[in-house]
Design a binder for these strands. Structure first.
Length: 910
RNA sequence: GCGGGUGUGGCGGAAUGGUAGACGCCGGGGACUUAAAAUCCCCUGAUCCUAUAGAUCGUGCGAGUUCGAGUCUCGCCACCCGCACCA
């Protein structure tokens, strides 16, 4: 047997221990070296590391190791985003305490991460469910509370009456709770909010400076913040002179038929518009169903019924797309501020209460929604913007014209530009005292109250005399009780027999603790600060934060493009605002990596025999405990014609290109319940349990070792795109690991002699790989290393070859650290290559002395020639014309022009 | 509907306006071997040909700018992602 093979099962663990014992990756805040903070989004401890994690952390790891070799002091920490619902779900299903479940998941995942050999500073590890961490978070919450950035108000929530809990929007499926299947109710609860809107403008402005963020993410945040400017103004309200039900309005416009409610009508209606220039085109007003005026009219049963109808309207994309504009004439009119015309006021289903003032002026000519509404209810559609003044009387088409133009049919605004007219109307409104120019934001304050157990308790005491009172800081952390019961529905903290009972810090009288916990996004809004600095007795130290922040590279999934990244930016600003830190933007550069995908296969179901399971399912459906979609996704095998996903490992390809899954077929037949009809190739999709295309990293590492997996994660696909997993691909990586090992083994210190070509290629590669890594173009760095490896393999032993081999060894070491350490030691080095310096390229040795010149005739390639580097244009032209192939192509035609690009090409034009 | 992205061999993908397909995977042929594994070498965009050193076509489609376009401009198409009745 030869020992000429690299054995990761032995080497990986050995070097992981060596790094650990040497403290190689422990970051020193007091180091004089330039500092690099490399961070990947910390994981939720779900139980297992998946390929997406491996890809994410491998990228960060290469950067961290590279920066260290470039002489930086690197902070590359890891921790756990440990609060959240899955732990409570596990508690309910498996009867384990959420803390126990979470802790054991963390232990398992940490072990998995360690065997991949990541260069992490584990001394800074923490979990957000550590009382120490969330205690500091509570203190920061109270600091922000004192600064007026936290407040409490009533807010509507989705309430599941069966589970007695609040649901996030994503947990409401077709108006029903995802778990209980019960009809979700709207409830008003007192909730805590962060005043993120105070920073709306600043958060928006700040985006402009984040040059190293993807444009896509900046745009998404920009849209989310949603700044718009316009005019907020009020209409005087009038009694409607028109009597009774609507006449001559075939569109079915209902109309309030009683006047009983009119006494309660306020005198004014505030509206917001971004198009004050079109004010002369207003033909109606519309208010939201939950607008105070609509509410005050609800004593009229017709109106009450209409309001109910509006609320029922679906909120899914498809429903909104097709939803008809519906209105109800209130019988009240608004007086147009310039013309005095009486505009009917409708309650309308397309007006949102929580944007602007919850009321709009309807300008059908120049707003598509207003246009549809006016068409339906036969309201006037006037043109007030035209391409040109001469087009003032041009008829309107079949949709609104929202484009630019000049104002027409608008009294004093006629002939003015849109922008000009906007400014004029705003000025007149302000002079007249009936309106003012305003900025409106889409961004809402951040509601952070969650009626759950497994989160950071909100450190507030509700005192009967003093209302909500902060928990005194010396009583922090407010710890979660351990003895908790998940048997009965509702918030376990609320139900706990003793936990919430305490005393008022001011009066000493009995009082109740706040039983809500914080949104887990709060936990991840400052963890990167805690990684950088963790003094005793304080969340962090500002001076130490200043040494590391901002994070140099922040890497994670694009799914966090809005919420997490916006909240983290907000917290950083808020903490800076109250003087806790001196950093504004937490992440200097952001990189959003693609997903790891894999082939899917599915089979169609042919026949069913109902099993016991199926009958249970039907009962659950009948009892409304389950929606059809849920039943389908949980038990696809019970539905004829539906598709069942197959594990790619069960699928075999036939010679004719079709697929079969013999093992699954047998499994089905044995169960005597289901038959499949045919196996089909599905799309390459993100690995997910439900699609059965997950590949477990642990099993792959067992087989090929950490380095092959890491190399795979970096190869081929650009890191921002999806990476398709393949068995063949990982085998290729494994072969390359061994190929490198043999090359390193061929290192012969005694070899003598030059090899100019190889030396040049080595220097070129050193330069290029460094640039590629810094640009996070790992796939290109990998390709260059393949090339140089090929060249070094073919070269005869020489000093130049030894130089190339050592350069390759150093350059692959951030990517395949175990192999590199093993080879480094075998070459007789006593230190760790993880602590070695990145190789230097010599600019003088990069230059080629001969170049290949392309010869084109009319832009088409006819020949290539070799010429000395830096040959003159005249020489190149002469060489080109001397080419036999070129002469044949020219066929004696007259040469009109010759374009010469030095060292590149000659193009002959005839 | 609005916004953004992507489109190149059988596949993943390279390519400062200058030789399209680097590099990897798959596939084919060969060497070594009793055999296999491993390894090494060669071929591998399509079509045509008189098939050695030939020609034509080719980067989603259609135009344009240019001596020269995968790359720039305009107009389409397809797919993916995000947001969504935001006044």
């Amino acid at each position: 047997m030869t020992d000429n093979r690299f054995d990761p099962s032995k080497a990986d663990g050995r070097w992981q221990r060596a790094w650990d014992e040497a403290g190689t990756f422990t970051a020193d805040s007091n180091s004089d070296k330039p500092k690099s903070y490399i961070l990947e989004m910390f994981p939720y401890p779900s139980g297992r590391i998946h390929m997406g994690h491996v890809r994410n952390y491998t990228m960060g790891d290469v950067l961290a190791r590279y920066q260290k070799m470039r002489g930086h002091e690197v902070l590359h920490p890891m921790g756990w985003d440990a609060f959240g619902m899955p732990a409570e779900n596990a508690a309910m299903e498996k009867k384990v305490h959420p803390g126990t479940w979470t802790r054991s998941n963390i232990a398992a995942m940490k072990a998995q991460l360690q065997r991949i050999g990541f260069a992490l500073d584990w001394t800074r590890e923490f979990a957000t469910c550590d009382p120490e961490y969330y205690g500091h978070e509570q203190a920061l919450f109270l600091d922000l509370y004192e600064a007026g950035l936290v407040y409490r108000r009533q807010s509507e929530v989705n309430w599941d009456p069966v589970d007695m809990t609040v649901l996030a929007n994503e947990q409401v499926i077709d108006g029903k709770g995802w778990r209980s299947g019960a009809e979700v109710e709207k409830r008003k609860l007192d909730q805590w909010f962060f005043k993120i809107t105070d920073f709306a403008d600043d958060l928006l402005q700040g985006l402009g400076e984040l040059k190293d963020w993807p444009d896509k993410v900046r745009l998404m945040q920009e849209n989310w913040i949603g700044k718009s400017s316009g005019l907020e103004f009020s209409f005087e309200l009038q009694s409607d002179a028109r009597p009774g039900p609507v006449e001559g309005r075939e569109g079915g416009g209902a109309r309030a038929s009683t006047s009983s409610a009119r006494a309660e009508i306020p005198e004014r209606l505030d509206v917001y518009t971004t198009r004050p220039d079109t004010i002369f085109g207003a033909s109606f007003c519309a208010i939201a169903a939950d607008h105070p005026i609509a509410q005050s009219l609800a004593s009229n049963p017709e109106i009450a019924a209409f309001i109910e109808e509006c609320k029922r309207g679906g909120t899914t994309a498809a429903e909104l797309e097709t939803a008809e504009k519906l209105g109800f004439d209130t019988g009240i009119t608004a007086k147009h501020p310039f013309t005095g015309a009486a505009l009917p006021i409708f309650i309308a289903n397309f007006v949102l209460m929580d944007y602007g003032t919850g009321a709009v002026m309807g300008v059908p000519g120049h707003d598509q929604r207003d246009f549809e509404f006016a068409t339906k209810y036969e309201l006037p559609i006037a043109r007030v913007v035209a391409k040109d003044v001469s087009e003032a009387d041009a008829p309107m088409g079949d949709e609104a014209e929202s484009g630019d133009g000049v104002i027409v049919n608008s009294d004093f605004l006629d002939g003015r530009s849109v922008e000009d007219a906007k400014a004029d109307v705003i000025a007149r409104a302000e002079d007249g005292g009936w309106g003012k120019g305003t900025t409106v934001w889409r961004l809402r304050d951040w509601g952070v109250s969650r009626q759950r157990y497994w989160g950071t308790p909100i450190p507030i005491i509700h005192s009967p005399d003093h209302g909500p009172v902060p928990v005194p800081k010396d009583q922090l952390p407010v710890e979660l009780p351990e003895d908790i019961d998940f048997e009965t529905p509702g918030n376990p903290l609320e139900r706990h027999p003793t936990w919430k009972h305490t005393v008022c810090p001011i009066s000493g009288k009995p009082a109740l603790r706040e039983t809500d916990t914080l949104d887990t996004f709060v936990d991840s809004s400052w963890y990167f600060l805690r990684f950088a600095s963790q003094p005793d007795g304080a969340p962090f130290d500002a001076e130490e934060i200043a040494k590391w922040l901002p994070v140099q590279h922040y890497i994670g999934g694009v799914e966090h493009a809005i919420l997490h990244l916006l909240y983290a930016r907000f917290w950083t600003r808020a903490l800076a605002h109250i003087g806790k830190i001196d950093v504004k933007e937490p992440f200097a550069a952001l990189f959003t990596q693609g997903m790891v995908t894999h082939q899917t296969y599915s089979a169609r179901l042919k026949s069913i025999r109902l099993t016991e399971e199926g009958e249970t399912l039907i009962h659950r459906l009948l009892d409304n405990k389950l929606t059809m979609e849920q039943a389908l996704s949980e038990h696809p095998e019970l539905f004829e014609g539906s598709r069942r996903w197959l594990d790619p490992n069960d699928v075999v390809e036939n010679e004719d290109g079709t697929f079969d899954a013999p093992s699954v077929e047998n499994e089905f037949r044995d169960a005597d319940s289901v038959f499949y009809e045919g196996v089909e190739l599905g799309r390459v999709e993100k690995m997910s349990k439900s699609k059965k295309n997950v590949v477990d990293p642990d099993a792959i590492i067992d087989q090929y070792g950490a380095d092959a997996v890491r190399w795979f994660m970096l190869s081929d696909s650009p890191p921002e795109r999806d990476l398709p997993w393949s068995e063949a691909g990982i085998e290729g990586c494994w072969r390359f690991v061994q190929r490198l090992w043999r090359l390193f083994d061929a290192y012969d210190p005694a070899a003598k002699g030059e090899d100019k070509d190889l030396t040049r290629k080595t220097h070129q590669t050193i330069l290029a790989v460094g640039e590629d890594i810094e640009a996070l173009s790992f796939n290109k760095a990998v390709a260059r290393l393949y090339e140089l490896t090929g060249a070094a393999e073919k070269a005869a032993p020489s000093e130049a070859r030894n130089f190339a081999i050592r350069a390759i060894l150093h350059m692959v070491s951030p990517m395949m650290p175990h192999l590199a350490e093993e080879a480094y030691a075998k070459m007789g080095e006593t230190g760790l290559i993880a602590e070695a310096a990145w190789p230097q390229h010599d600019p003088d040795l990069l230059v080629e002395d001969e170049v290949t010149i392309a010869i084109q005739h009319k832009g088409k390639l006819r020949d290539t020639i070799t010429a000395p580097k830096g040959a003159t244009k005249e020489d190149l032209e002469a060489l080109a014309l001397a080419s036999e192939k070129v002469q044949r192509s020219l066929q004696g035609a007259e040469v009109r022009k010759v374009i010469v690009v030095p060292d590149r090409l000659v193009n002959i034009v005839t």
